[in-house]
Amino acid sequence: MSSAPHLDLDHVAKLARLALTAAEQAEFSRQLGEVLHHIEQLAKVDVTGVEPTAHAFPVVNVWGEDVARPGLPVEAALRNAPAQRDHLIVVPKVVE
C-alpha cells in the first residue's frame, strides 16, 4: 500500500459483473483513484498486534434447532422472477 494503488478497473468490473460504459470507466477511474489515494493514509496506522474487528459485539454459537418450518409456496417464491417455466426459473444458457 506504500506505492500508488493501481486499480485495474476492467478486471474489477468483470469480477463484479458490471458492464461499464466508456464514460463510466473514465469517470470511475478518476474518482476511485482519488478515493484510493485518500485511503492510502491507513497504511500509516500501526496495527501491530491489533486484532481485527469483525463484529462490534461478538457472541458465539448463535443457532437455531433443526426443526423444519414451512417455506414459501412455489408461486410466492417465483412471484418476482423475470422468467419462469414449469416452476423453474429460466435464464439464458449457462456456458462453462
Partner: peptide, 10 residues
Amino acid sequence: HSATESLVDY
C-alpha cells in the same frame, strides 16, 4: 440445461 436456456431449481 436445454439447447438455449438453463432452468434453475433452488
